[in-house]
Design a binder for these strands. Structure first.
Lengths: 214, 214
DNA sequence: ACCTGAACACCGTTCAAGT
DNA sequence: ACCTGAACACCGTTCAAGT
């Protein structure tokens, strides 16, 4: 309860700088109150005055990272705007590997995050999606985006310890017939960046269909 | 390196039972080696023989939870099978709130997980999706599903501390025009279960379109 | 107004020792 | 074969005290 809304002092910004540097260098799990304090040459307790608690620190980091994501040119076509936002999110996550974990750890209630939601709403409206459908479709798209970022960051899309071929060799053909039938196409997953582009194109087609029916 | 592939002893199952009970009662973050050991009336060190390490424990939990998810009736139509799988995942996550965090924490390389992927492949094939497109579409759908489960578990879709109305009142209309224009439709988000059904219907339409073009 | 010191109740894991 | 005890290097947070 001490410093729920800490004063906008410069010291707070220094704390966030240190936490972000730590996250960039060693991952989000290295961001402990003690480690951040050590980086500032100060006692852990000194931080509590500025960020309230560790959850407060994480919330502040989310706000900062989201604020860095560029908004698309409002003059561009709506589908180009969606593509630009997807690229912006992906670039942000690749630069800041801790972003997806932060987004999942804390609900987004920050103006910096709503700014992005606003741009999504505008794109869906300009696509011709009926107003009552817009919030749900925005959540559909952003849920996919979040799942993608989290998967990439957590290594779910990565190769794992075994190659696809080795892994498949261990699957009994009787129980996994489609895996074996698709063998050729499982071996060479396309570059992830291209896959994300293709997925976004599919979602854009989905949105277009929604607009056509309204 | 000690017990990477521990013997299939009964003691191991008891360790997993205890960990799962702890996760169900107090959340995944309560699952510590020390707490699991205490529940078994044993020293933390005793666990290492059976699960190797904490990561090993988590991997084993993922495998167990995924194995519990029912597969759809292979005789049903492909879209009904997809709907059934979505419901199965959602039910599993609601029963086991730690599932999404586990799925994101550890890449799925387990046969219990691939069993579900296999059923997805089969549904997409039966929908008429061209073979080269199937793996990507499976990842699109499962990435959305994962994002959904993680969002629901982390409270991203929850109400937050402010009501939608209060939150919107703090957004400057000049910067958030679409939020304000959509006010009526933001106030009453539909039940999340119904929203997931609608999302799955949209993804099914997307898949149908892919099939039609092949 | 801002920071420190000591303490409390926790973590995962290693190593040597017991039975 | 299975478990224990002691130790190491960590966590977030509270409280009283310093300047």
């Amino acid at each position: 309860v001490a410093a729920q809304t800490p004063s906008p002092d410069g010291r707070r910004e220094e704390v966030l700088d240190a936490a972000l540097a730590l996250a960039d260098e060693q991952g989000l799990e290295a961001v402990s109150m003690r480690a951040v304090a050590a980086r500032l040459g100060v006692t852990p307790m000194a931080l509590y005055r500025h960020v309230g608690t560790k959850a407060g620190l994480l919330d502040a980091l989310v706000a900062r990272l989201l604020a860095e994501i560029p908004l698309p040119d409002p003059g561009a076509a709506w589908d180009e705007r969606l593509r630009a936002m997807a690229r912006g999110l992906r670039d942000a996550a690749q630069l800041r590997p801790s972003l997806p974990a932060l987004l999942l750890a804390r609900p987004v209630v920050d103006p910096a995050g709503l700014r992005i939601v606003e741009a999504m709403y505008a794109a869906l409206r300009d696509a011709g999606v009926p107003a009552p459908e817009i919030p749900r479709l925005e959540r559909l798209v952003s849920t996919f985006a979040l799942g993608w970022l989290a998967s990439e960051a957590a290594g779910r899309l990565g190769p794992g310890e075994l190659s696809p071929r080795e892994r498949r060799a261990r699957l009994p053909p009787a129980e996994f017939p489609v895996h074996h039938a698709l063998a050729r196409h499982l071996d060479a997953p396309s570059a992830w960046d291209e896959e994300l582009d293709a997925d976004v194109d599919d979602l854009i087609a989905l949105i277009r269909a929604k607009a056509g029916s309204g």
